[in-house]
Simulated assay, not measured.
Amino acid sequence: MYTNMNPDSEPWNIALVDNDALVRSYLETYLGGLPEFNICWSMQSGRDAVEAYHHSIACTNCVPDLIVTDLSMHGMSGFELCATIRFENDHTPILGCSSYMIEPYERDAVNNGMQGLLLKNELAQLADGMRTLLSGQPLLKSNGMPYETPQQAHERLLMQGKPAIMSMSPNEQAVMELCSEGLSTRTIAEETGDSESTVKTYISRAMRKLRAKSRAEAVASWSRKTKL
């Protein structure tokens, strides 16, 4: 079972992540208006969501029973967000949602430990999928096979090792984001207030964690992992 929550008692705590403020507000209004759901927190980026998740766990305050996330977000995609949380968490289902066709993203969803993919503009279907996951039942992939449970995905990711972005420090992530914007080492140093030597160290560490042989390869890998 994914949750011990009794749907006849307290509503399920739902966490929402979407970088589009209008869409996020729309989802909050619709889903929060259903009696079985309580929006415990709502974030606009993957990094903010990871921080909110860790805060809720530490404070045992509004711990989500289900996380619903957009796929394409600046800095950390929904897939990287999922892998980061799933690496630590073996019980909370994570549902990806998109405004576009979902089948092309199914492999990434599975690889990063999601429990399903649904269209965010099909609100009734989205709510039904959330109820299915929270009742302990799996959603099905396009081939009719079920998605992994949180525990199955967690165990697989543990075997594979820590996700690359999760292993990078905030400074390394910030520098890689600036690199992806085409900025030079000198300009990045000016932007961050670090020395050029320090920036080069961050880039070198990021390259190693991304298993890249060059700065260009690291930037390409970073962009693939954080931007769809």
Rank of each mutant, 00 (worst) to 15 (best):
P138H: 12
K120G: 01
L140Q: 07
Q152S: 05
M168P: 01
S197W: 03
L210M: 01
L134E: 07
P150T: 03
R131N: 08
M166K: 15
S135D: 10
G116E: 06
L123M: 14
I188V: 15
L118M: 05
P170S: 13
G193S: 05
S169R: 09
P150A: 08
D128R: 05
T201I: 10
K141Y: 05
Y147S: 11
L118V: 04
H154G: 06
T201R: 07
M159K: 10
D194S: 15
A153F: 06
A164V: 07
E191D: 12
S197V: 14
L178T: 12
Q160C: 12
P146E: 09
S169T: 15
G161L: 02
A189T: 10
S197G: 09
Q152I: 07
K213G: 15
L119N: 13
M166V: 03
E191R: 12
P150D: 03
G161M: 02
I165Q: 06
E122C: 04
L157Q: 14
A153Q: 11
E191P: 01
P150W: 05
S197C: 07
V175I: 15
A206N: 11
L178K: 07
G129S: 02
L119F: 06
M168Q: 07
E177S: 12
S195V: 03
M207A: 13
K162N: 09
E190W: 00
Y147V: 14
Q173I: 11
L126V: 08
R131F: 02
Y202Q: 05
G193C: 05
T132W: 00
D194E: 15
K120W: 01
L117P: 06
G182I: 10
R208S: 12
G161D: 00
I165S: 07
E196F: 00
C179R: 14
M176E: 01
L134V: 03
A153K: 09
A212H: 00
G161A: 05
Q137G: 06
L140S: 05
N171E: 15
G116D: 08
E191S: 11
Q151V: 04
R211E: 13
L183M: 09
T198C: 01
M159S: 13
E148L: 14
S204M: 06
R205A: 02
A174L: 11
L140T: 08
V199W: 10
N143D: 15
P150R: 01
E190Q: 11
